[in-house]
Nucleic acid binder design. Structure first.
Length: 418
RNA sequence: GGACAGGUGGGUGAGUGGCUGAAACCACACCCCUGCUAAGGGUGCGUGUCCGAAAGGGCACCGAGGGUUCGAAUCCCUCCCUGUCCGCCA
């Protein structure tokens, strides 16, 4: 959640920052006004409440002394009614305030370029030269069919569109990739976790998926449980409503989970193949840091994801997202896009974000800094999206006859055989 | 899923209507004493929010939400969770 006090004190600055993300200034004005109202209502209520408490105490003393309490009681009865109204008012305003505040996206960092969509993102650098083909490279869905790696029809039969199933060679490769990623992350300091893939609404609110993006989530009927769209939700919320010791930071975590997304609003996009599925595997990194540590950890996470791609021999580029393309919770994001020779373009395979204290405020994740409790910074990034890595391997390692060469680094994970 | 028992501060745990935001002990921090593997004493030590430069003060929070009452951690209702036993089961 955005810092309301910051908006109150630095309104113009806050407004110009959020303009980068396309947030209307009027929304902020409304918020500021509500915040002022909330404080006023709170003050009014608390003053009366203090009065009531004092008189009630007297009431007890009077009674003990056998004094007449009728007059006092009448006074308190009236106060009670007055307070009930004041309290109700304060509650209503507060609820309204938070309802609105929870819909305001995070402030982008100053470094974030202006822009309205992905076309305005800024390429930072390219890593590894795309391979030169002496034949026309095919797209992954074609290769998948030629090699019988992916069964799209039966995936749909089992569930619905945008579900697929992997046949023996691809299924093994999928798991090899998961293990390879987890090991790679672990070697670079990320603790390997295992988490529930169903999380409750409080957690989804903590990382920013709720309340605004409810339509993107699969919800369990009759339960306060959602299938997580990313392990970021579970990993970050491990520390929901906790106060951490400064010495324990930064916490670097990694986990593999399947991820579930409704992909509402992306009808017609990437309908062929497994680029955009309702269920996909991903190995995620999450970091919990002090504000001072978060920039350095951010770089480390980007580097780690990039190094994995390099280890797999996959050409890729780093892209700094512009304000308009930045996610709701992110202050800054660098996407890693892998080269897909079949599609002849770079496609997102990892996204590393620093949310600064935005999620920490929502999820109430703090750390002790001396006597004070401060909000941590939370960061997340894929390392990597597994299904998309499978695509990248298929397209980059394809041979003229449609067969696919397995990258050397994965062979140990396949017991040297498919 | 059924039955019973519970949910209090970092932990253990007291507290059945006002003197309790909460005893005591442990843990932790600092100080004093002592002097070596027996320790003792003192002080501090929840979270959030509002006012304040600060000191300090107000309000809220004893699983969550309602209710009764002048007044609730304490009484009532609903829900959630935990434990134990039974059932079921990877």
């Amino acid at each position: 959640m955005v810092d309301l006090k910051y908006i109150e004190k630095n309104f113009e600055e806050a407004a110009s920052k959020l303009a980068k993300k396309g947030v209307d200034k009027h929304l902020l004005e409304e918020l500021k006004e509500l915040f002022a109202q909330k404080k006023e209502a709170q003050r009014a209520f608390e003053a009366k409440r203090a009065e009531q408490k004092a008189l009630s105490k007297e009431f007890g003393i009077y009674k003990a002394q056998g004094k007449d309490i009728n007059e006092l009681k009448e006074k308190l009865d009236n106060l009670k009614k007055e307070i009930a109204t004041l309290e109700e008012d304060a509650k209503v305003i507060e609820a309204k305030l938070y309802e609105k505040a929870l819909l305001i996206p995070n402030f982008p960092d100053d470094i974030v370029p202006e822009g309205k969509d992905e076309n305005d993102n800024v390429e930072i650098k390219r890593v590894l030269e795309p391979r030169a083909f002496d034949f026309e490279p095919k797209e992954h869905w074609e290769l998948a069919q030629m090699n019988n790696w992916i069964d799209f029809e039966r995936g749909v039969k089992l569930a619905k569109s945008r579900f697929a199933l992997l046949n023996p060679p691809a299924a093994k490769l999928e798991r090899a990739l998961i293990n390879f990623f987890l090991d790679f992350n672990e070697k670079n300091g990320f603790e390997q976790m295992w988490v529930p893939v169903l999380n409750n609404s409080k957690m989804l609110l903590g990382t920013g998926q709720l309340p605004k993006f409810q339509d993107d989530l699969f919800k369990v009927e009759g339960e306060d449980l959602y299938l997580i769209p990313t392990a970021e939700v579970a990993l970050t919320n491990i520390y929901n409503d906790e106060i951490l010791e400064k010495e324990k930071l930064p916490l670097l975590l990694t986990a593999y989970t399947p991820c579930f997304r409704k992909e509402a609003g992306s009808a017609g996009r990437d309908t062929r193949g497994i680029m955009r599925q309702h269920q996909f595997d991903k190995v995620e990194m999450v970091a919990i840091t002090t504000p001072e540590q978060s920039d350095e950890v951010f770089e480390k996470m980007v580097e780690n994801a990039s190094n994995i791609l390099s280890a797999l021999g996959l050409p890729h580029r780093l892209v700094e997202l512009c304000g308009g393309d930045l996610g709701f919770s992110a202050a800054r994001t660098i996407d890693l896009e892998v080269w897909l020779p079949g599609q002849k373009r770079y496609r997102e395979i990892s996204s590393v974000s620093n949310t600064r204290d935005f999620q920490a405020r929502r999820a109430k994740i703090r750390y002790k800094d001396g006597k004070k409790n401060r909000f941590v910074h939370t960061l997340n990034g894929s390392a990597l999206a597994v299904g998309r890595t499978l695509i990248a391997i298929m397209e980059n390692y394809q041979n003229k006859d449609g067969s696919i060469t397995i990258p050397e680094v994965l062979k140990p994970y396949l017991q040297n055989r498919l």
